[in-house]
């Protein structure tokens, strides 16, 4: 018996000593990331190399193309495709920054629409902020420090405006739609002129490029836009989840009951 225990312990010790310890270390990730902004970072990183890594940049962009097309219009996606094909780094990056502006509009607009849903509004504001953070290095060259601090304060004001349920009710605050709209428009209005969008000439044969751009990048955000379904964010249907769990509980309970009736337990 003792022999066996010793052997087993030796094996465990060997296994532990050889296994890569790093795999066990955990840390909490950051929910405050935005896919479009992450793709932007990859694209500028690849294009910033000498020589520019167009294959890497295009691969990163392909991952995001569907999202761009569904939210900002096929015309915008086609323009970017053309930019990538023409191998013009400056124009591609400039248009990708404009896409970040469009993304700001999308997230802000959605946040205004979901002001009654605290979690959703907060998540959308966080994604907008992540988008903004990706633009900050470029904005720093164009705006003064105090102007940037003002934008940061506007983000804080927007966060305050969606209210707060508080911790066990402590710190509870109601939402204020008007304040939210003011705050986000200040950010959006300050950033939009800095990163203009250059529509492609014959990209995909769009009928009216200007109208398409206006749709993707309006002058002010009022929370009335029709948005593409957010298929990426609602993958799980809570009703189905609850149903499945309830089903498992019922079946499991039935099995236990049956087993007890038969005297198996």
């Amino acid at each position: 018996m003792r022999m066996m225990v010793k052997t087993a312990m030796l094996f465990i010790a060997l296994f532990l000593a050889l296994a890569p310890a790093g795999a066990w270390a955990y840390s909490y990730g950051d929910a405050n990331t935005e896919d479009v902004a992450e793709t932007f970072k990859l694209v500028v990183s690849d294009l910033g190399k000498t020589p520019a890594d167009w294959t890497g940049a295009e691969a990163a962009h392909k991952e995001r193309r569907e999202e761009i097309a569904s939210h900002f219009g096929e015309e915008v996606a086609a323009t970017l495709d053309a930019n990538f094909r023409s191998r013009d780094a400056d124009v591609t990056i400039a248009n990708y920054k404009a896409i970040l502006i469009m993304n700001l509009d999308r997230r802000f607009d959605n946040a205004i629409q979901s002001i009654t849903d605290y979690t959703q509004a907060k998540l959308l504001l966080a994604k907008a902020r992540a988008t903004y953070e990706a633009l900050v290095p470029y904005a720093e060259a164009k705006l003064s420090k105090s102007e940037l601090d003002g934008l940061s304060a506007d983000f804080d004001a927007a966060l305050e405006a969606i209210g707060n349920p508080g911790l066990f009710g402590v710190g509870k605050k109601e939402a204020d739609g008007q304040a939210l709209q003011t705050a986000v428009n200040q950010v959006y209005g300050a950033l939009k002129p800095l990163f203009p969008y250059a529509p492609g000439e014959a990209a995909g044969g769009a009928k009216d490029p200007d109208a398409a751009v206006q749709a993707a990048e309006p002058d002010t955000i009022d929370g009335t836009k029709e948005h593409a379904a957010m298929e990426r964010e609602n993958k799980t249907n809570p009703a189905i989840t609850v149903g499945v769990i309830a089903g498992i509980v019922v079946i499991g309970g039935g099995a236990v009951f049956w087993a007890r009736r038969k005297g198996l337990l």
Binding site: A23, Y28, G29, A31, T33, D117, Y118, T119, Q120, P165
Partner: peptide, 23 residues
């Protein structure tokens, strides 16, 4: 409740744990 409800909390928990090993 501090996150506005169970659904939001779960959503957040998933978002935080997704980044575990890749951050």
């Amino acid at each position: 409740l501090s996150e506005g409800g169970v659904r939001g909390f779960l959503q957040l928990a998933v978002a935080f744990t997704e980044g575990h090993f890749s951050e």
